[in-house]
């Protein structure tokens, strides 16, 4: 039989990192070194992780294509598969199918100012793009990251956040709804920070990912600041199974989030039947 799009490659977990009480990061490498060396993708693309016997789910590859020592995935514990994934340890095998889906249009973003607006586990796809840009720093204008969570504990990639803030070639604004006594950053919701910073839409692209309610208010705030629909980029999530546009369920109108997405501009989303 010709190569089946449903057949995963086998990967090994080389490291797990506890991000928050219910979010873990997994670093994996494909067991076949040649396949790992040949693995090519662009920021924003996703892959399906399998735990055989439990199932498969879609996650964004949140390590950048510029750093191919491993592929990184960040997983919030919500359903059957993610519960099972959270029980796995270093050395355990998982299945991996990918890369799948579309990607951020990095070429179109070259030479422009970039505003990342993330919430909770929604930082994952932003991380891929951010690191890709930092690894190609000269290609892009100013970079601003606004990242929020419920509490300081609920922010992902905590050690990296500090590193990024210390770099000097990007701006990092962190905010939480409920601070603890050690919190030295902002308090409040992400869209309010955006408004407060009065980010300029001039030659800028805003990339946002987070809970649906945050995205909704972020897009409103961006519009108020003068961002056009073409300047706002987001990623969508849907229940997915096949990941290759065949099983049907992730459609929005005639588009499939698994192949036509997950990355959409606000202009593209407005052209779809409003069912998300």
């Amino acid at each position: 039989m010709s190569h089946s799009p449903y057949m995963p490659q086998i990967a090994t977990i080389i490291e797990t990192i506890d991000e928050t009480p219910d979010i873990k990061t997994f670093r994996v490498v494909l067991q076949d070194p040649a396949a790992m060396a040949a693995f090519r993708f662009l920021p924003g693309q996703v892959a399906q992780l399998s735990v055989f016997g439990t199932g498969e789910s879609t996650f964004v590859i949140n390590s950048p294509p510029t750093r191919m020592d491993f592929l990184q995935f960040t997983v919030m514990r919500v359903g059957e598969l993610t519960h099972r994934l959270h029980t796995l340890r270093e050395g355990d095998p998982v299945g991996l199918r990918g890369p799948l889906g579309n990607h951020f249009d990095v070429d179109a973003m070259k030479g422009r100012d970039i505003v990342f607006i993330g919430g909770g586990v929604g930082m994952a796809p932003l991380r891929t793009l951010l690191l890709y840009m930092l690894d190609n720093r000269a290609d892009f204008g100013t970079i601003t990251l606004i990242y929020g969570g419920r509490t300081p504990e609920h922010l992902c990639y905590k050690s990296e956040l500090a590193e990024w803030a210390a770099r000097g070639d990007m701006r990092v604004e962190l905010t939480v709804d409920n601070p603890d006594k050690n919190w030295s950053h902002r308090v409040g919701v992400v869209p309010a920070v955006l408004t407060d910073l009065n980010v300029s839409p001039q030659n800028a692209v805003a990339v946002t990912c987070g809970p649906p309610i945050m995205i909704r208010f972020t897009i409103q705030a961006l519009a108020k600041l003068g961002f056009t629909d073409e300047q706002i980029v987001t990623t969508l999530e849907r229940r997915m199974k096949c990941g290759v546009g065949l099983c049907g369920r992730c459609n929005i109108g005639g588009k499939f989030v698994c192949v036509d997405g997950p990355v959409f501009t606000q202009a593209q989303l407005k052209g779809l039947p409003q069912e998300f």
Binding site: Y6, S50, E56
Partner: peptide, 28 residues
């Protein structure tokens, strides 16, 4: 439209493709 699920038996099992229906709430 189809669903994909794993059916496990001990240390082995299979990944199945099954008819699914968009009329079910579970579909999405």
């Amino acid at each position: 439209c189809f669903n994909i699920t794993d059916e496990n038996q001990g240390l082995k099992g299979k990944r199945l493709r099954t008819w699914d229906t968009c009329m079910s709430a579970l579909y999405t």
